[in-house]
Computed example of a mutant assay.
Amino acid sequence: MKHVCLLRGVNVSGSNKIKMAELREALESEVELNNVQTYIQSGNIILDSELDKNEVSKKVHQLIKKSFGFDVPVLTLSQGELKAIKSANPYSNSDIKKQYFVFLYSKPKQEDIENLTSISYTNEEFTITNTVVYYHPKEGYGKAKLSNNVFENKLKVTATARNLNTLETLIKLAQ
C-alpha cells in the first residue's frame, strides 16, 4: 500500500537539515519500507508498506531520530485521504498559488477552534476541519499574518503546511 509521509520542520530555516538522498537510503534499509521516493527538500516521502499508517509514522519517526538525531513529527496519509482533502477545499476557485493546506497531526479541541476562528485578518481566510486547515492568504503566504506556527499555537496541535502544487504532486506520486 502507498503511503505519503509529511514531515514537520525539516530543512526549514536551516534547521533539522536532512539530505533527501540520505533519508531515502536510510528508509530503504528498513525491510517494511519499500519504493521510497522523496519530493522536494521540505520533507515529503512516498513509500510502499504493508504497515498501517500509524505504524509507518512511528517507524519513519524512529528511523529519523536514530539516523539523523532529529525528533521530527511524521504524519502519514493515503492517496485517497489526500484526494479527499483536496476535493473538499473551499477555496478551490481562487488563485492556485494562494491555496494552502495545514495538515493537523491530531484533532483540535473545540474551544481551541473557537479561539482561532475569533481571529480575523483582512485578506486571509481559513476553514478548519478535524484533519486540516484550508488556508487562503489572498495576498500570498509571504505577506500573511497567519502561518503554520500560528495555527499550531492556537489549535494546540502539531501541524505542517503544504501548498496546492505540492499536494497535487504528492497525489500523483502516490498512484
Rank of each mutant, 00 (worst) to 15 (best):
residue 56 V to I: 08
residue 75 L to C: 10
residue 140 G to H: 11
residue 125 E to L: 13
residue 56 V to Y: 03
residue 92 S to P: 00
residue 123 N to T: 00
residue 29 S to Q: 12
residue 138 K to A: 07
residue 23 L to G: 04
residue 93 N to F: 07
residue 35 N to E: 15
residue 90 P to K: 10
residue 25 E to A: 09
residue 22 E to R: 13
residue 136 H to K: 14
residue 156 K to E: 12
residue 84 A to V: 08
residue 118 S to N: 14
residue 9 G to C: 03
residue 120 S to C: 09
residue 88 A to P: 02
residue 169 T to R: 15
residue 99 Q to W: 14
residue 146 L to K: 02
residue 175 Q to P: 05
residue 75 L to V: 12
residue 115 N to M: 10
residue 73 P to S: 13
residue 167 L to N: 05
residue 122 T to D: 04
residue 112 D to M: 09
residue 77 L to N: 07
residue 130 N to C: 04
residue 149 N to I: 11
residue 168 E to C: 13
residue 76 T to Y: 00
residue 8 R to G: 01
residue 51 L to E: 06
residue 98 K to N: 06
residue 144 A to N: 09
residue 63 L to E: 03
residue 104 L to G: 03
residue 35 N to L: 08
residue 69 G to K: 01
residue 91 Y to P: 04
residue 21 A to R: 15
residue 151 F to E: 05
residue 117 T to P: 01
residue 69 G to W: 00
residue 43 G to K: 13
residue 5 C to E: 00
residue 104 L to Y: 02
residue 43 G to V: 15
residue 101 F to Q: 01
residue 48 D to P: 12
residue 157 V to M: 14
residue 155 L to D: 08
residue 61 H to F: 12
residue 115 N to F: 11
residue 115 N to V: 09
residue 73 P to C: 04
residue 39 Y to K: 06
residue 81 E to R: 06
residue 38 T to F: 14
residue 53 K to F: 14
residue 53 K to Y: 11
residue 98 K to Q: 08
residue 98 K to L: 00
residue 167 L to G: 04
residue 47 L to Y: 12
residue 126 F to N: 02
residue 115 N to L: 10
residue 16 N to M: 08
residue 111 E to C: 01
residue 79 Q to Y: 04
residue 66 K to C: 06
residue 127 T to P: 00
residue 50 E to W: 12
residue 71 D to L: 11
residue 162 R to L: 10
residue 138 K to N: 00
residue 150 V to F: 07
residue 122 T to V: 01
residue 113 I to E: 04
residue 95 D to Q: 03
residue 32 E to C: 13
residue 117 T to L: 10
residue 137 P to L: 15
residue 16 N to T: 06
residue 75 L to A: 06
residue 164 L to Q: 13
residue 84 A to G: 07
residue 36 V to C: 09
residue 64 I to W: 08
residue 142 G to Q: 09
residue 130 N to H: 10
residue 61 H to Y: 11
residue 131 T to H: 05
residue 3 H to I: 04
residue 21 A to K: 14
